[in-house]
Computed example of a mutant assay.
Amino acid sequence: MNFIFIFIAALLAASVTLWLGLALWRGPKLDSSLEHHAVNARVLRDQLAELEQDRANGILSLPDHAAAQQELQRRALDEATPAQSTGLRRQSSKQAAIALAIVLPVAATLTYLALGNLAAITPPPVQSAPAMTQADVQAMVDSLAARLARNPDDAPGWLMLARSYRYFEKYEDAAAAFAKATAVIQADPLALSEYAETLARSNQAGFKGEPTQLLERALSLNPREPFALTLAGAAALERQDYPAAIDYWQQLLGLLPADSDAAQAVANTIERARREQAETAAAKN
């Protein structure tokens, strides 16, 4: 960016300097002036010849002839003066052109250095953002909790706080925050699934009761929600409903790329569920 700006500025300055320099170097056109003086000189010569003819014919007396001749000589001197001044102007125009070619670029550079902003064309170095530590996250969570204490009707804020507590594995605090975010999680399948998992981890009953109801609601909103299918399979396995668990996880497997690590993990889980199902059936017999 810096190089492009300097190149364009130099090109513009050079163009203006060249245009003005050529105009001064050439100076004013002299053709018409020279032609004018040549015509006047011929006229004066003709008039002088006429005077001589009139003197010879006796039309003009000697004193009148002398006076007329002096007048013509004076006019001839006057006609010669502009040609000399024109030469001086032409010489001074060339000197001005040379001075302009030197002074204009230097003056433009010095003016920009004095008044311009070099930093504007030099982008500041990109600085990488400092890595956020767990202490920084904890400080943000504490600040959010303090704000919600002053504004308890902020349902989106409670959902954010609940997810933050889940991050720190504070499941009881997370469950309490989810309960205050009911207004926004009832239509959010992922948030319902997170709430169900939080409740299952924070009490001895596991997925029994409200967590399973939350998962059922999440799947009714979006039957293809991956986290809801994962937890629904876990809840079914917990109550030893192996066919339901295998069905949920097979639906989940269909949503994952066939060659991904996640798909392989789900396939292994399905295989374990089938072995447990077979072992449980054998034990009953």
Rank of each mutant, 00 (worst) to 15 (best):
F178M: 05
I270F: 02
E216F: 00
A129N: 07
V184K: 06
A13Q: 03
A263Y: 07
A9S: 13
V16N: 05
V103Y: 10
N2S: 00
S202E: 02
A129E: 15
L148R: 09
P156M: 05
A135I: 11
L190N: 04
L190M: 02
I270N: 03
T111E: 00
L100E: 03
S164E: 03
Q134E: 15
Y195A: 09
A181G: 05
P125H: 11
F207S: 09
R74I: 06
I185V: 15
Q70M: 06
I6E: 05
W25Y: 14
A108I: 12
I185T: 11
L110M: 09
P243K: 05
E279G: 08
E216K: 05
D46W: 10
T212H: 04
L24M: 09
D247S: 12
P243T: 05
P105H: 06
V137P: 04
L12G: 06
G87T: 03
E276T: 14
A179C: 06
G116T: 06
S202L: 00
G233S: 14
A176C: 08
L110F: 09
A139R: 13
A41D: 01
I98C: 06
L221N: 04
R217I: 13
A114I: 01
D46H: 13
A13D: 01
Q84L: 10
K94R: 15
A187S: 03
A97E: 10
R275S: 13
N285M: 07
R239Q: 15
S193I: 07
F168T: 11
R55G: 01
A66S: 12
A96Q: 13
M132A: 15
E52G: 04
L100T: 13
I4R: 10
A23H: 08
L24S: 01
A129D: 07
A38R: 10
L255P: 03
I8Q: 01
K94Y: 03
A13E: 03
Q213A: 15
A129G: 04
Q251T: 14
V184P: 00
E169L: 00
P223Q: 08
I59A: 05
R45K: 03
I98W: 14
Q53Y: 08
Q213W: 00
D142V: 12
L72Q: 02
N117W: 00
W249P: 09
R147T: 08
H36G: 02
W19H: 10
Q204L: 10
M132E: 14
N222D: 15
A107I: 12
A97H: 09
A9W: 06
T198D: 08
Q250Y: 01
R150E: 14
A273W: 08
L190W: 01
A56G: 00
Q95R: 10
I121G: 04
A67S: 04
A244I: 11
G254S: 11
V141W: 04
L190S: 08
A80V: 07
A179W: 02
T198M: 06
E172G: 10
R55Y: 01
T86I: 13
A267W: 04
E71N: 14
D78V: 11
G206R: 07
V16R: 02
L229M: 12
P243L: 03
A183P: 00
P211H: 06
V137M: 15
Q186E: 12
A108T: 09
L118R: 10
L144V: 06
G157Y: 03
S128Y: 08
P223W: 01
S202Q: 03
P124G: 12
T133F: 14
T212R: 09
T81R: 11
H36L: 04
